[in-house]
Design a binder for these strands. Structure first.
Length: 495
RNA sequence: CGGUCAUUAGCGCAGCCUGGCUAGCGCACCUGUUUUGGGAACAGGGGGUCGUAGGUUCGAAUCCUGCAUGACCGACCA
């Protein structure tokens, strides 16, 4: 049964896509629900994947000249009032700290908030850190010699969302936020685009997830930004997912926090800013890009375990196959491959096969008595679920090659899916037809007005995910209003 | 924040409608034996504030009310 019909503990994608996603996250041990509404516990296996992501991204940030720092979790309420559109974007989802002490309830019901311990000024749990960082940058920046400032922080943030999903939208989530300050607009724009490229490279080369790069429309733009650049990925249910954003903030925050620098010519100028971030939402993207009805599928670069070795046999035979596995495991380890040897003799081999498929381990190596005789091993790929018998000779290099191939083929497969679900559409009728059948990205003409954008969203629930960065010039008419348009934009229903 | 549904052992569920012996079942767990190439078999065993707070009642897992958490739908959302 489990050979062909998926894991019995996981709801199939075709039956209930949302439930499938939840099942994978829970059953693969990525995360658990917590006692706090909308929050989650990221479990060791899930966190190990996040740590891999962090380490690749962190290296890329360092390679582009950034340094890590850490700013406070709490932000004085007054800071958030300084940039009007910024606060407008976040006000509705901020957690507020009002008191600093608990006391024993006089009625004996545990502890209660001490009404005497009210804060002078309330503190906001950061939904993002622009305000506290720019209030700090004011002290750091005097002259052009202090610029640029290229800082990143790894942190948690809180946004009080109405409706949450594990990893995709949680009340508290982990992310990195880069905040840079520059002398010129050009330099800041260049930084914004550079970091977008870092994200796109990461998505494709590390996560094996193809993305569209583009610019957000005014409606979808970050509160307080001049331009928001983004990478957009397509999930297996035909819905788009914003996987990362990079904002050109202009001088909005410099003006709000009065951050000026002295130029070489001796004049005072406002500083130019960027900010950019990706979050644990990427974990959700990873799940929904590659996984199947048997469980998680991980690209080898991110897999905490790249190869699992399973000895098969009984009694004396098991002793020998186990010894052979041990020998191979240390050989692979020496090459830097992340291996796990599963010696548990309380679990049957079949049970283990299913288990490691659920966990998304890219390769499974099984050694049984027959293999010992023939000096072979059974090598099974998680992504294709193909098994082959291979000679033990040269096994390590074969495994290395196969891991590389899996990484490349996962990207190819995801790109083929994305491309075959990207449609050029010229009428509202076809537009809705696509959305109601397979879903996917829709390239269509748009007249550039918020009214048309809103009307399309109202009618179809699809939004403009981005205006492609390298938009082809093509004369056409807006799919909604019939007014002239100079190029196509990317529409989709989105997470 | 509104609607619907759910919450009983680590997990999945039955029991509730029609209140009443010691709250059951499957998986998992522990012991032992046999097993081991796709989620093994048998025997024995341990594990429960029935989400929570009240109410009705001689008696509540069961009926009523509030609250909490989750799922789905809607509104909301960089």
């Amino acid at each position: 049964m489990s050979e062909s019909q998926g894991n019995k503990e996981i709801t199939s994608r075709s039956k209930d896509y949302s439930q499938w996603y939840n099942d994978i996250v829970i059953k693969a041990g990525l995360a658990d629900y917590s006692p706090v509404r909308g929050c989650m516990v990221i479990k060791p296996y899930g966190y190990a994947i996040w740590e891999k992501m962090q380490s690749v991204l962190d290296s890329a940030f360092k390679a582009t000249g950034h340094q890590n720092a850490y700013f406070p979790l709490f932000i004085p309420k007054s800071f958030l009032s300084k940039e009007a559109s910024h606060i407008e974007g976040f006000a509705k989802e901020c957690a507020v700290v009002t008191h600093y002490r608990l006391i024993n309830d006089p009625n004996g019901n545990g502890v209660v908030v001490d009404p005497e311990a009210k804060l002078e000024e309330e503190l906001i749990v950061r939904p993002t850190s622009e305000t506290i960082i720019w209030s700090t940058y004011r002290d750091w920046i005097q002259s052009y010699r202090d610029l640029p400032i290229l800082v990143n922080q790894w942190a948690n943030v809180v946004r009080w969302e109405m409706r949450t999903r594990l990893f995709l939208r949680t009340t508290e989530f982990l992310w990195q936020e880069g905040h840079t300050a520059h002398a010129t607009s050009e330099e800041a724009v260049e930084e914004t685009r550079k970091m977008l490229d870092v994200y796109a490279d990461f998505a494709e080369n590390t996560m094996a997830m193809p993305v569209f790069k583009g610019v957000k429309t005014e409606n979808e733009r970050f509160a307080g930004a001049i331009d928001t650049y983004c990478i957009e990925a397509l999930m297996q249910d035909g819905k788009a997912l914003q996987a990362g954003t990079s904002h050109f903030l202009g001088q909005n925050f410099a003006k709000a926090f009065d951050v000026k620098y002295l130029t070489q010519e001796g004049t005072q100028e406002y500083v130019w800013a960027t900010s950019w971030g990706v979050s644990t939402r990427l974990m959700g993207a990873l799940v929904m890009t590659h996984s199947d009805d048997f469980g998680l599928v991980l690209p080898p670069v991110l897999a905490p375990i790249q190869v699992v070795l399973i000895p098969v046999g009984k009694n004396v035979q098991l002793e020998s196959t186990r010894a052979k596995c041990k020998e191979l495991a240390s050989e692979l380890k020496a090459l830097g491959i992340r291996v796990k040897l599963d010696e548990d003799d309380k679990k049957s081999p079949g049970w283990k096969y299913s288990e490691y498929e659920m966990l998304g381990v890219p390769l499974r190596l099984v050694i049984g008595p027959r293999d010992l005789e023939n000096q072979t091993a059974e090598l099974a790929r998680r992504d294709t679920r193909q098994k082959e018998i291979v000679p033990c000779d040269g096994l390590a290099s074969r495994i290395n090659e196969t891991l590389d191939r899996i990484q490349a083929e996962l990207l190819q497969k995801a790109r083929a899916y994305r491309d075959s679900h990207t449609y050029k559409v010229d009428t509202m009728e076809d537009f809705e037809k696509v959305l109601d059948s397979t879903g996917g990205f829709i390239l269509a003409h748009w007249d550039g007005t918020s009214q048309s954008e809103e009307a399309i969203k109202e009618k179809t629930k699809a939004t403009i995910r981005c205006i492609p960065l390298h938009q082809e010039k093509e004369a056409g008419v807006c799919i909604y209003s019939g007014k002239p348009s100079m190029g196509r934009v990317v529409f989709a229903r989105a997470y």
